[in-house]
Nucleic acid binder design. Structure first.
Lengths: 275, 275
DNA sequence: GCTGGACCTTCCCCTTGGGGCAGGCCCCAG
DNA sequence: CTGGGGCCTGCCCCAAGGGGAAGGTCCAGC
C-alpha cells in the first residue's frame, strides 16, 4: 500500500510517516529502489495507530519509540504510569488556575495559610552541596541514610525536624547549593560531626520563620511551589515587609523546606526566615 | 532593576524577558540608549508573574498577550474557560489512555459498544459543502437554522433524526465535503427542496449501519472519535469485514454522525454503512 | 584612575514535530 | 502515449526559547 493510503488508514500524515521512517520508528516494509517510493503493509497499521494515539497524547517521539518496542505487559505498565502522570499534572495545573482566578478576584480562596514560628538557637549537622533539580531529592535521601546509619540523636519538639535550605535557585541551570540539616543536642554536636564524614556542624541563631504547610509529599506537583511563594509574598506585602528572601538569597537567608516525617510519607512546609 | 534581578524575582529567564520585550508583551520601563541595557521597575513584577504562571500552563504567548491586557473580570472569565478546557482535554486523554491499556491487555474494557441498525429507503433534504474542521459545526448550525426556519416536516421514528455525512476527512487540510441531512416524508421532498434555497433532495437507498453511541455532545473530546473508530474497526475485524469505510471514502460510503436532539443537548452516534 | 570580574548586549545555530512549497520523477488509466 | 495525480527530496518556516560566542558596560576595590 502506498504512503497515501497508509496515511489515510493510520491517520498519520505522509510528512509524519516520512519522518518516522527517517528516525527508524516506523519503516516501510519495502522501498522501491529506483523511485524511492515507500510501500507499507496492512499489519503495520497496528503499530502506526498506536504511534498516532501516543502522539495525540503528546508523548515525545523518543518515548513513543521506546514504548512501541516493549512487550504488551510492559507497554501497558508504561501507559499506566503515563496516565498517573497526566492525572498529577492536571491536578496541579487545576490548582494553579484556580489560584490565579482567585487572585484576579482579589479573593483569598485557594490561598495557602501563612503562619509564623519562633525558632530557637540550635546546633545543626549539615550536608551541603551543589545539585541540579533532580539531584536535590537524591541528596536528601543520601542525607537521611547517613543520619539513620549514624543513629544521630534527635532534638525533640517542633524545632527538631530535618529540613533543607535552598541557598540559591535550584532550577534549570543555577544549581543550588542545597543544604540538608538536622538539629541535634547542643552538647553532642561537634563530636557527632567529627564522627560522620561529610557532615559539618554549625550553630543557627534564633530567628523567626514565616511558613506555609504544603501537605503530603505524594500530593505535591510542580505548580504547588509557586502557590506557596505567592502566599508568602502576599503575606509579606500586607505587613509591609520586603519579599527579598523569596527571590534572591542574600548571605544569610535561604528558603527552607521542612520534612515532618510520618507513617504515610513526609508532610512538607515551605518557610522563609524573617526578623 | 536590571534584567538579572527582575529575572530572579519574576522567575522568567533573561532570554524569555528579551523575547517578551521584542514581541511587546513585557517591555522594560527604560532602555539605556547607548548600552541597550534593559531596566525594569517593581510594579512590573505583577504582570511578569502572571505571564510566568500562564506560560507554566503552556498558554501560547499570543493568548498570554491577549489575556494580560484584559481587565480583571474578563481575565478571570478567560481563565475559567481555560480551566474547563484543561478538564475536558484531560478527561478525554484519560479515556484514550485507558482504552489503549485495555487494548494492550486484549481486554474489552472501555471498548465502546457497536450495534447494527436497519435504515429504510428515505428521502433526504441535504446541505453539502467543503468545510474545514471548525466549519463543520458551523455548517451544522446553519443547516439546523434553515431547517427550523422553513418549518420542515419531520419523518417520525429513529430513522428521522438529522445527521451529517463526512464524505472525506475533515482534518488538517483535506476539507470534507460534509453533508448535513434531514429525512422528510417521501411525498413532500421535492416540493420542500424547491422551496428552500441551498437545499437539495435525494433518495437514500435502504441499508444497514454499524454504529457506536457517543453520549452527550457536551462530554465529548477530540480523543473520543478514535475510540469509536477503534471499536468499529475491531467489530469489523471480528466479523471478517473490511474496515474500508472507516478510513477511505469510496463513492457511496461515508462515516456519519447522527444527532438525537434532547433537552440537555444532542446525543451523538457514530455510524458507518455496511452491506 | 585603573582593572577585574560580573553583568549585559546582539547574533547565530539548535531543539521538536512536523507544515508548506518548489522542482522534478513516477505510475497508471484512458 | 499522454495527462494528471501521487510521490520524491530539499529547503525554509513555526513556537518559545536554550546555548554559546564575541564583544560592550558597570561598578567595587585598590
Amino acid at each position: 500500500m502506498s504512503i497515501g493510503e497508509f496515511s489515510r488508514r493510520s491517520r498519520l500524515s505522509p510528512k509524519a510517516l516520512r519522518l518516522y521512517d527517517e528516525i527508524g520508528l516506523l519503516a516501510p516494509s519495502r522501498v522501491e529502489r529506483h523511485s524511492g517510493y515507500r510501500y507499507y503493509t496492512a499489519p503495520q497499521l497496528e503499530r502506526a495507530r498506536l504511534v498516532a494515539a501516543l502522539r495525540r497524547l503528546d508523548v515525545p517521539l523518543a518515548d513513543v519509540a521506546r514504548l512501541v518496542d516493549l512487550d504488551r505487559a510492559a507497554a501497558a505498565e508504561a501507559l499506566g504510569a503515563l496516565g498517573r502522570e497526566l492525572d498529577a499534572t492536571h491536578a496541579a495545573r487545576r490548582r494553579l488556575v484556580d489560584a490565579l482566578i482567585d487572585d484576579l478576584h482579589r479573593r483569598r480562596g485557594n490561598m495557602k495559610e501563612v503562619d509564623v514560628r519562633e525558632v530557637p538557637e540550635r546546633h545543626l549537622l549539615c550536608l551541603k552541596r551543589h545539585v541540579d533539580p533532580a539531584g536535590a531529592w537524591d541528596l536528601g535521601k543520601e542525607f537521611i541514610a547517613v543520619v539513620r546509619d549514624a543513629g544521630l540523636p534527635r532534638l525533640e519538639g517542633p524545632a527538631g525536624e530535618t529540613f533543607a535550605i535552598f541557598w540559591g535557585e535550584v532550577s534549570q541551570d543555577s544549581d543550588g547549593p542545597v543544604e540538608w540539616c538536622r538539629p541535634v543536642p547542643a552538647d553532642e554536636a561537634d563530636a557527632l560531626a567529627a564522627g560522620v564524614p561529610g557532615l559539618s556542624a554549625r550553630v543557627e541563631p534564633a530567628h523567626r520563620e514565616a511558613y506555609v504547610a504544603m501537605g503530603n509529599y505524594a500530593d505535591l506537583g510542580d505548580e504547588d511551589w509557586p502557590l506557596a511563594e505567592r502566599a508568602l509574598r502576599r503575606w509579606a506585602e500586607e505587613r509591609g515587609l520586603s519579599d527579598e528572601g523569596l527571590s534572591t538569597t542574600p548571605d544569610d537567608l535561604g528558603v527552607r523546606i521542612t520534612y515532618h516525617f510520618a507513617e504515610e510519607g513526609p508532610d512538607l512546609d515551605f518557610a522563609v526566615p524573617i526578623d
